[in-house]
Design a protein around this nucleic acid. Structure first.
Lengths: 154, 154
DNA sequence: CCATTTTAGTTGCCTATGCAACAAAAATCT
DNA sequence: AGATTTTTGTTGCATAGGCAACTAAAATGG
C-alpha cells in the first residue's frame, strides 16, 4: 500500500475536490431552478431504469445509489409518495421489498436527465477534449474499481 | 457554449462522480474511525490557516469553504464552542465578524491532516502515476476555473 | 444630515441522511 | 423440529446544511 503523497498528487486532489463540489452545486442549482428533483432522486431512478425488469431490492438500490439503507428507505418513501416507484414485497423472500420503477418514474427520469445532461455538458464536458475524456475514463475507472475493493462507499 | 455530450465524455462523468463519492465516503469513514471531525471542519480550518493572520471574515470563509453563509454561521458556532477558532468583531466595520484560528485549531488541523493525507494517498493518489497527476491538475484546474466564472459554487 | 438601499451575519424552519436499535423473516446448527 | 444467528428493511434520534426572513451597520443619494 502506497502511503506517500507527492505534492503534485496532493494538488491534483485539491483541484479534483473543489471541481467536484462546484460542478455538483451548479447542477443541483440547475435542477432546482427547473423545479426538478435532486440528483439523489435521479441516481435512484436511473439505477432502477438500468436494472432488469426495472426493479431492485432495497439494499441493492442503496448500494448502487450510494446511500445507507436507512437513507434509502426514506428516499423510497418520497419516491413512492410521488408514484415514481412502487414497493413490492418479494414472493420468494418475505424480508425483501422490491422498488419497481413506474411509467411516471421513467417520465420524471427523462425530464431530470434533460437538465442533468445539459449541466454535465456545460459544467464538465465543455472543458474536455476527447483525449481528456479518455484519460479521465481510464483513471477514474481504476480509482472507482480500487475504492470498491477497499469497501469504500458502495 | 458547448452543449453536446459525447458518450465518452458522459462515461467520464459517471466514473468521476462515482469515484468522488466513494473516496469521500472512505475518507470520512477514516476520520470518524479516528474520532476526528469531518472534512467540512478541516476545510474551514485550513482556509483560515492559509489566510494572512489566520483569520477571515465570515462571508469570505463561507466562499472558500464551499458553504452558504448560514451554514457557515452554524459551523463557526461549533468550531468556536470547541475553541478551535474565535469570533472577533472587525474594528473597521461593525457588521463584520472575523473568524480567527486558535493554537488549538492549528493543533486539530494537524491531527485531521494526518488522517486526511493518508486517506488521499490510499484512496486516490495510490492509483495515479506522476503523469496522471499532472493531467488531473491540468484538467481540474481548467474546470474549477471555468466553474468559478460561471458563478457555480464558491 | 436624514431616508433609502445594500451588505454581513444570524436565526427559524425545512429537508437530507446517517447510526443504532428494532422487528420480521430466513438461514444455520444441533 | 427448535434455538440461535444472520439478513432485510424500518424507525427514533441526531447532525448537517440550505433558503428566506430578520437585525444591525454601512453606503448612497437627495
Amino acid at each position: 500500500m502506497k502511503t506517500s503523497l507527492p505534492a503534485g498528487h496532493l494538488e491534483a486532489w485539491r483541484r479534483f475536490y473543489v471541481s467536484f463540489w462546484r460542478i455538483y452545486a451548479a447542477i443541483e442549482a440547475d435542477l432546482a431552478a427547473a423545479g426538478l428533483p435532486s440528483l439523489a432522486w435521479y441516481d435512484a431512478l436511473y439505477e432502477l431504469y438500468l436494472a432488469p425488469g426495472r426493479h431492485l431490492r432495497m439494499s441493492e438500490l442503496a448500494r448502487c445509489a450510494l446511500l445507507s439503507r436507512s437513507g434509502l428507505t426514506r428516499l423510497v418513501d418520497k419516491l413512492e409518495k410521488e408514484k415514481l416507484i412502487e414497493r413490492r414485497p418479494c414472493p420468494a423472500d418475505g424480508r425483501v421489498q422490491h422498488a419497481q420503477l413506474t411509467a411516471k418514474g421513467v417520465e420524471t427520469l427523462r425530464r431530470i436527465w434533460a437538465v442533468y445532461r445539459a449541466g454535465i455538458a456545460r459544467h464538465f464536458a465543455a472543458q474536455l477534449d476527447d483525449a481528456d475524456a479518455g484519460r479521465l475514463r481510464e483513471v477514474f475507472g481504476r480509482i472507482s474499481a480500487a475504492a470498491e475493493k477497499t469497501g469504500a462507499g458502495a
